[in-house]
Amino acid sequence: MTHWQGVFPAVTTKLDQDGSINLEATKASINRLIDNGVSGIIVLPMLGENASLLPQEKEAVIRAAKEAIAGRVPLLSGLAEISTAGAVASARKFQDYGAEGLMVFPSLGYKTDPRETAEWYKAIAGASDLPIMIYNNPIAYGVDVTPAVLEVLADCPTIVAVKEETGDVRRVTDMFIALGNRFDIFCGVDDQIVESMSLGATGWVSGMTNAWPKECVQIFNLCAAGNFAAARDLYRVMTPSFHLDTHVKLVQYIKMAEHLVYGAPEWTRAPRLPLTGEERERVIATITATIEQLKQMQSRRAA
């Protein structure tokens, strides 16, 4: 059975100002992430504006990522569909395009009950031999893959991991109590990574790693080594920016962080619009404060 661990950034799809996909910028960002030590790459997550892309654009992104990665780390693709038939078809297509795993959303068009949720994931798990990470984000999608639902899915060998994004860190322990080590548990929100790893999570699907891969990998590695004191020092510097990962406008906010940190394009696709006014100023101030504090921390260490 496949086991994933480490930092798997949810990669933003880079766009030009007219909304067209910039594949070269996307590939460059993937290379930057891998050069800074991430353990996997996830394209077409929510941060990748999955629901806003056409089918041929999704294919282009997966194939470009496959080329950029060149076998260095696993390539996962987000899979977000409305119908079971559409999700099954996409799972098969994405495998053909080069994806080596899937991060599967619940149905985007209908809030399934627990029985329907289990059947949704069973159908997709049977569509290909790709390993699957369940994307559990009930805050955004209204569907909770609870420990009880996971128990129903425990006999599906291709379902190997859960991106835990309920916002309640206690869920990590609840999953271990109910299921032991059956699923790899990934923290799915940036501002709970230290807490989640202290409870046994072994992976992190991260948004702000797009901007700060070196620092995020460092936090993860410190926690994995049990050095939580050092991890907390860095975590406290980065948490104000990590909080931006949990806002409804996380796509705009994280792309802004990438833009300010290393010059990546900030553009999103409508209906998402560029940040303006007080909101833009506030987000920029938060990010620039983190940039400055990281510089100060680095200077103190070098002294």
Rank of each mutant, 00 (worst) to 15 (best):
F186P: 01
G226D: 07
G200K: 09
A230K: 14
P147W: 07
T173S: 11
H3L: 02
V261P: 08
M103W: 04
A161D: 06
M1G: 08
T246V: 12
P274K: 09
A123L: 07
S20H: 13
D155C: 07
Y97A: 14
D129L: 04
S52Y: 12
P74H: 09
Y135V: 02
S20E: 12
I30A: 08
K214I: 01
H243R: 09
H243P: 00
P138K: 09
A231H: 08
K122G: 00
A161V: 01
Y141N: 05
L179S: 05
S206T: 12
V189E: 10
Q298N: 06
E292I: 02
T84W: 03
L234C: 05
G109A: 11
T13I: 02
A224K: 13
N31C: 14
L79I: 06
E57F: 07
A25I: 00
R115S: 01
A125Q: 05
E67H: 14
E57T: 07
G226E: 08
L79E: 12
I69W: 02
D96Y: 07
N50G: 01
S299A: 13
E49S: 02
A264E: 15
N136M: 07
S52M: 11
T202M: 06
T146W: 02
P147A: 09
A85H: 11
E100N: 10
T2K: 12
S196K: 02
G203E: 08
E49W: 01
A127M: 08
V61C: 05
S39L: 04
A68R: 00
D113C: 09
A127I: 04
V169S: 11
V152T: 11
L23A: 07
N31D: 15
V149R: 01
N31G: 13
T202A: 05
Q218I: 00
D155Y: 04
G188P: 03
G180K: 10
Q192G: 10
M175W: 03
D35V: 01
T239K: 15
L23K: 04
I34A: 04
N221F: 00
V205S: 04
